[in-house]
Design a protein around this nucleic acid. Structure first.
Lengths: 154, 154
DNA sequence: TATTGTTATACTCTATAACTATA
DNA sequence: TATAGTTATAGAGTATAACAATA
C-alpha cells in the first residue's frame, strides 16, 4: 500500500523525514501551500476553477468595474499573468470587459450573471475547503497564523 | 511610482484590500507562498535553480542512493513530476542515475561533484533567503509558525 | 514619458494515462 | 498483481519583451 511504498531504510516509520531541510521555514511554507493547493483542486474539480480564478471572481464581485491592473495589484500578479486568467474567465463567459469611461487605457471588468452564479457556487466550496484547513487549529491559532502570513506577503 | 500606480478610489492608501477574501486562510497561505517564491527566484537567479531543484539536491546530499519514488514521497510529488525535475538536474550534470543493486526497478540517485558544488552554493543562498524570511519573526514565533505549517502538510 | 492592455514566447510545476521492466 | 521508472501530453501559473492606445 501507500504506507509500505514509502518505507525504506531511512524511513522506517513510513513518514517523510527532511533532515536539515526541516529547519528551513520556506520549505514548510511550500509544502503547506502544496497541500492546500491539492485539496483546493479536489474541492473545485466539479466547478473546474483554480485558486487564482476564484480570487479574481471574488474580487470582481466586491469591486465591480475594477481594472486588470487593480486586480493584479491585489493578487500580486503582473499584467501578463492577470491577462491569462482574465482571458480564461472571459472565454467561459464569467466576466466581460468594458472600456473605462474615466480612463481610456483601462478595462472595467464586470461579472456576468454566469460569473455571479459561479462565484456563489465557489463560495460554498470555499467554505468546505476552509473548514478542512481550519479544523486543525483553534480560533486563536488561526488569528496568529494569518497575522504571521501577512507579515510575509505584505 | 509604484505607490501612485496602485491608488484608486477603492484603494486610497495604496495598499491592497481584500474584503471578505481577507478572512480566508488559504488565501493568505497562497500570497505568502508567492512572496517567498519571488524572493527565492531572485536569490537563485545566478545559480538558476528552482525551489524544487534545490530540495532534490539537498535530499540527495543527505540520502545518497535514494530512489526517485523516495524523493517524490518526501517532497509530495508524484512520479512524473519527480522525473521532470530529476531529468533537468541530470541534464545539467548535477546527478547520475544508477540501477539499484537491491531492487532492479529502482534507480539509485547520486550527486556528481558538480552537484555537490551546486548544493554547497545553494546552501549559502538559502541562508540569505531564510534570513530575509525569518527577520520578521522572533525565534518563538518561527517555531510556532513551522509547527502550524506542519499540521497542514503532514 | 508613463500607464494599461495586448500579444507572443518560454519555462516550471503539476497531473493523467499508457507503456516497459522488475518484483 | 503491484511497484518503479519512463514517455507523451496537457493545463496552469509565472515572467519578459515588444507593441499600440491613451494619459
Amino acid at each position: 500500500m501507500a504506507n509500505a511504498a514509502m518505507k525504506n531504510d531511512k524511513d522506517p516509520a513510513g513518514l517523510p523525514e527532511y533532515g536539515e531541510l526541516d529547519g528551513i521555514v520556506g520549505f514548510h511554507i511550500r509544502l503547506a501551500h502544496g497541500a492546500v493547493y491539492r485539496h483546493f483542486t479536489e474541492t473545485f474539480a466539479e466547478l473546474e476553477l483554480t485558486q487564482k480564478q476564484v480570487s479574481v471572481l471574488w474580487l470582481l464581485g466586491e469591486n465591480p468595474g475594477a481594472s486588470q491592473i487593480e486586480i493584479g495589484n491585489r493578487l500580486r500578479m503582473d499584467r501578463a499573468t492577470t491577462m491569462t486568467i482574465v482571458n480564461r474567465l472571459q472565454e467561459r463567459g464569467y466576466l466581460r470587459r468594458e472600456r473605462s469611461s474615466s480612463d481610456g487605457r483601462k478595462q472595467a471588468l464586470h461579472l456576468t450573471p454566469e460569473g455571479e452564479k459561479a462565484l456563489a457556487e465557489a463560495k460554498v466550496c470555499i467554505r468546505s475547503h476552509e473548514e478542512w484547513l481550519k479544523s486543525r487549529f483553534s480560533a486563536q491559532e488561526i488569528e496568529k497564523l494569518v497575522e504571521m502570513l501577512g507579515r510575509i506577503h505584505e
